[in-house]
């Protein structure tokens, strides 16, 4: 047990080092890019006086190392700076856009976990039979279909032809006008549920289905393939043969003894895909006009809004690193071999 503690402490220190270097590198990169933050800050019609004032306000007149140190100082206080375009605090922006992204990403990954595990284990049990081949084709499709293309196709089919789901955005405009959602968590579905706003709940659920489905295709394929290949491997292990030979019930063997062994790597993969989607979902977000973190990031990049880029990068890094840490702990919890090493 003690060795696991030291392992964990090592991992945390390593995570902090990673975060430090990411901050430093993004800071340097954002300052060597040929652009004038002060000019972006005040806009094209500003006077020279206003510009001078902005330079002082942003600390751009100071030597680069002072700017670097000050950036760190602010960071520790939870201040990610102000957006050059909107002049709003970046952290506030991120927290505003984050729930929209989390809502579809969490839903997509829950769906992926359930569908992926079900498909993957069924496929492994029916190895080399028709069902297995079909599932394998679908899962290869899932990991290889470009999400933007698939997003457009789902829009075409479910909005254009069938007309059963709305085209884009988080809520229909008439609902927004007449049944506005009182924001508590930022998750529309949850907020609508808490406030008992049934009309808005139904509408937000209808809006979330398509983007979440499109986002889920990749992790579904990933988890299915992972669970299948691990399960096929595990089913050939001696301990499965031993359990069979000594009369363990089939359901116990497949859904307890084999699945738990096969599940851990799938969870690891899913965790990484989840952390990646936080900022990586922007293609889907843009197509579905989903006001999420991905959309925010892309806009920040296009407009050279460097505090926003830095903020999102750092936020993303911290998120990624902590998901990884969480996965390590989860793995140790699930697998005694890791825990007892």
């Amino acid at each position: 047990m003690a060795s696991f503690k030291t392992y964990l402490i090592k991992r945390i220190i390593l995570a902090l080092v990673v975060i430090y270097f990411v901050i430093t590198i993004t800071f340097i990169l954002s300052h060597v890019v040929p652009s004038d933050p002060a000019e972006l800050y005040v806009g094209p019609k500003a006077t020279a006086e206003q510009r001078e004032k902005a330079i002082k306000e942003l600390g751009l007149n100071q030597p680069i190392y002072i700017q670097y140190l000050r950036y760190f100082q602010n960071l520790v206080n939870g201040d990610l700076g102000k957006s050059l375009r909107a002049h709003t605090p970046v952290l506030h922006d991120i927290l505003t856009y984050l729930p929209a992204t989390l809502e579809i990403v969490v839903l997509a990954n829950i769906v992926a976990l359930i569908v992926g595990v079900a498909f993957g284990s069924y496929s492994a049990l029916k190895k080399d039979m028709l069902a297995d081949h079909l599932i394998r084709i679908v899962s290869v499709g899932g990991v290889s279909i470009p999400s933007f293309w698939f997003a457009l196709i789902t829009q075409l089919v479910f909005f254009g032809i069938l007309g059963i789901f709305p085209l884009d955005s988080r809520l229909s405009s008439d609902i927004q006008l007449f049944n506005p959602i009182h924001t508590i968590t930022g998750f529309y579905t949850i907020d609508a549920l808490i406030t008992g706003n049934i009309v808005a709940l139904v509408d937000s659920v209808r809006h979330i289905i398509l983007p979440a489905f499109v986002l889920a295709t990749y992790p579904i394929g990933l988890v299915t393939r992972m669970v299948r290949s691990m399960m096929v491997e595990v089913l050939n292990e001696n301990y499965i043969r031993f359990a069979k030979a000594n009369g363990f019930k089939d359901n116990l063997i497949y859904y307890k003894y084999a699945l738990k062994n096969a599940l851990t790597p799938a969870l690891m993969a899913l965790g990484l895909s989840f952390a990646y989607s936080i900022t990586g979902a922007f293609l889907v977000e843009v197509i579905f006009s989903w006001p999420g973190l991905g959309t925010y990031t892309v806009n920040a990049i296009l407009e050279n809004d460097y505090p926003a880029i830095l903020g999102v990068t750092i936020f993303g890094t911290i998120f990624y690193v902590f998901i990884n840490l969480f996965l390590d702990i989860l793995q140790a919890y699930l697998d005694p071999r890791v825990r007892l090493q």
Binding site: Y239, A243, A245, N246, P336
Partner: peptide
């Protein structure tokens, strides 16, 4: 039949038992 009237132990005990349980 397996486990009830006929049972089997294997060559390598370290891989006979499931390491996760």
């Amino acid at each position: 039949v397996r486990g009830k009237s006929m049972a089997m132990i294997l060559q390598d005990p370290s891989s006979s038992l499931n390491p996760m349980f």
